[in-house]
Design a binder for these strands. Structure first.
Lengths: 186, 186
DNA sequence: AAGAACGTACAGATAAAACTGTACAAAGCA
DNA sequence: TGCTTTGTACAGTTTTATCTGTACGTTCTT
């Protein structure tokens, strides 16, 4: 629906401005691993005056309902949009999370955290395996040296991921805003 | 070039371990907006004992030289690998940046910073335009209200991006390591 | 200066993703 | 309970990204 409530010629300028901002938001959304069209969907919702249904989005974006469904699901998973219930309607309504600081921290909590944990797990497993191999091939100097070199690399990788894990903790706890306040120090 | 120096049966286990870690690294590399195969290339380089040439990578990865070239260029742009000069060889040699903390901050400096700056510029431009429209359509209450609402949203977006800009500053300056030390506090 | 080796641009082929329409399950309404 | 509406699964199509081979410019060697 968007601007339907002001169907006059002035709206053209507002529409154009919104479109430009939406384009920009959508283009830079690949940082979050989101496709451009889902980024557009997000941008459109950003300017929406009230929560929207899938059908409304579909007609606004001129896209199929299925695409809207999958796009919204992606945005929901990243907590970039929220589901809103409105009594009397059995349609699902969605609106963007307007607190972008929250969106930022949620993004890292959802996407990066998962990756960090998976990596640490695999690395630990590999280090254990490596310890066994180090014992087994203690008599083969060359192989032993190669194993130790790899093991050191894996240990350093684990340290890094643990740091990343703690960094994400500070995002999630809001501690990061002590170091970098939302309001710039004048 | 990998394990060729130990062509015995024990190497199987080491190879397998490396492969698993490489797979994991490659899979989670999409956080950096990098394709899976470029992620594999990175993982392979991670375990390489010395800097490698494009041809060596090509034979190790069983991929075309062109793909190696474009993959390496991507990794170079993100400063995930470095070009190494070796006197006497006119081939380009590459090795991964083993300081992953550096890689992390470089990533934000390269990718996010660009995005942040582009967004702020577009938003400022739109806010200016909006001020003109607010004057022009002061007589149209509904449109005026809509404009003000949008303008507020844009202002909040600018604030957020400025915060992000300052956050990336703390990454780049290393100040972030004061809040989140590399060595975990025991 | 001529030749050889190296890296990349380009165009075509292959693989992956995004999108659509239909069909169907779930949930509210009569 | 039957009827309608809403959201999603699935298969097929379209679009986009990735990969390959050839051709060519550049640089180093002789």
């Amino acid at each position: 629906m968007g601007l339907d409530q002001f169907s006059e010629e002035h709206d053209e300028a507002l529409h154009k401005m919104r479109k430009r901002v939406i384009e920009t938001i959508g283009r830079n959304m690949d940082l979050y691993g989101i496709s451009q069209s889902t980024g557009h969907l997000y941008g459109m919702l950003f300017f929406a005056d009230q929560p929207m249904t899938l059908d409304q989005m579909g007609s606004e974006m001129k896209m199929s309902k299925t695409s809207m469904s999958t796009g919204i699901r992606t945005l929901l998973d990243l907590k970039m949009v929220n589901k809103v219930w409105e009594k009397g309607s059995r349609k699902d309504l969605y609106e963007v999370e307007y607190d972008w600081y929250q969106t930022f921290t949620d993004f890292f909590d959802v996407k990066w955290r998962k990756s960090v944990e998976a990596n640490i797990m695999i690395l630990r497993k590999s280090i254990d395996e490596m310890d066994r191999m180090l014992e087994e091939y203690a008599g083969n100097p060359e192989l032993f040296a190669a194993l130790q070199k790899d093991k050191m690399k894996l240990h350093e990788a684990v340290s890094y991921y643990q740091w990343l894990d703690r960094l994400i903790d500070t995002f999630e706890s809001g501690e990061i805003f002590k170091l970098v306040p939302k309001e710039p120090p004048m």
